[in-house]
Amino acid sequence: MLDVHQLRVLTEVARTGSYTAAAVSLGYTQPAVSYQMRRLQQSVGAPLVVKAGRELRLTEIGAVLVRHADAVFSTLRAADQDVASVVARGGGLVRMAAFQSSCVTLVPELVARLRTTQRGVQVTVSQVEPADARRMVRAGEADLGLLCDWAGDDLPDGEGAMLRTELMTDRRCVLMREDDPLAVNSTVDLADLVSREWVMESFRDRFLAACTNLGFRPVIAATVDDVSAIQALVGSGLGISLMSELALHAHLAPGIVYRPLRNWPLRRTYALLWPDMATVPAVAAVLREVRSVAGELRDRFGAPEG
């Protein structure tokens, strides 16, 4: 029989890459971590970690065990949340992790809705990038994540055992001044923007790859991760930008317009959680309401359903 405490030690060793760092994180001594790992490997009958330079890496068996451990911890958290929800008569705390543009559109409307329909449910929100939200949900640091990716992409690593609920899609748009020559067009092609300067967010790998495929290297005039700051800099004439419709529906500065980018995949917004968490009344209520809010946003803004 596998020991839950030993599984927790294994997952922390996998996360930190060493017995010493895992001990610090867990509040154990390093010999205690070594002992628990030794006992777990004896129980399994095979090595679970191997040296890789100065770090420890999971063996194939270790990786399988960590995947199962994540599911075990999720079940335990769901049981704890479920009991707390019964005590709170259907209420409870739901921790959310959400990407930036959802925090200015989906999340505010969700919270307002919950205050009317689910008064006993409390929500906390952490704004993080999708990769961090995925990690937080997987590690139990968030009960539900709002994430995004691109239509046509493979399922991201780490989501195979989790519940993914599609919410909506939106388009990538070119943000420009209203007096820009391209503002007369209904859509814009990236190939038409070879000579332009850009105000871009830090995470722009897909954009850079697309520029490379077209044979040009974009001139980045500013790197900014705040939506309002991007719009202000575009309005000043520093450059143009790319932004998804979801953020633009929340606020569009005077003198700024946007045009959908042609031949670009739709961005998908979805909720991510462990299946066990979906049975917890408070979490189920939040998931139900966020699906409703996303549907209303699609209807209101004419966003493509994908």
Rank of each mutant, 00 (worst) to 15 (best):
L155C: 14
A271D: 08
A151I: 05
Y19S: 01
L287G: 12
G140C: 08
L214T: 09
E109Y: 11
A112Q: 15
G120K: 12
V125N: 08
R39V: 11
Y28N: 04
A78Q: 04
Q118C: 14
G235A: 09
S34W: 04
A133H: 03
L26R: 09
A112P: 00
L40S: 01
R138C: 10
L266F: 11
R172V: 05
L297S: 02
S241H: 08
L193E: 07
V104I: 13
S102E: 06
I230D: 01
Q100Y: 11
A191N: 01
R262E: 11
R291T: 13
P218Q: 10
L146Q: 06
L242R: 03
E289T: 10
W264T: 04
S101W: 00
G237N: 08
L287V: 15
A232D: 11
M96T: 14
A63W: 01
D205E: 14
D226L: 01
G27T: 03
A14T: 05
V94M: 06
V49F: 12
P181Q: 12
V125S: 06
V290S: 01
P181H: 12
D132R: 15
G295E: 13
R95T: 15
L167E: 05
P218M: 11
T187W: 05
Y19K: 02
Q36T: 00
A46Y: 02
M96Y: 09
A131T: 15
D276P: 04
A191D: 06
A46H: 12
R268M: 13
P265T: 07
D189A: 14
A112N: 13
L10Q: 04
S126P: 00
N185Q: 15
A32V: 06
Q100S: 14
A88Q: 10
W264N: 03
P130V: 10
G302Q: 03
G255Y: 05
R267K: 15
V128H: 12
A247R: 03
D192P: 00
G145L: 08
S195W: 02
A52F: 02
H251D: 10
A247D: 07
A222M: 03
T116L: 15
F207T: 03
A69E: 02
R291Y: 01
Q30N: 10
D132I: 12
Y258S: 12
A282M: 10
P304D: 07
E197D: 14
R267H: 11
Y19I: 00
G295C: 06
R177C: 04
A46K: 13
P130D: 11
D132K: 12
V104H: 00
D157S: 15
E166R: 13
T20P: 00
C211P: 07
A221L: 11
V94S: 04
R204K: 15
V49R: 01
R119K: 14
F216S: 04
L233Y: 03
S186V: 09
V128S: 11
T59V: 05
V44C: 05
V283I: 15
R164A: 07
S43K: 13
L114K: 10
A22I: 07
L190N: 02
A284H: 09
I61L: 04
G235S: 08
D149Q: 06
A222C: 02
L26W: 08
H249P: 00
L261M: 11
V123P: 02
V94I: 10
R119G: 07
G92R: 03
L76P: 02
D225V: 07
Y258C: 09
A22K: 05
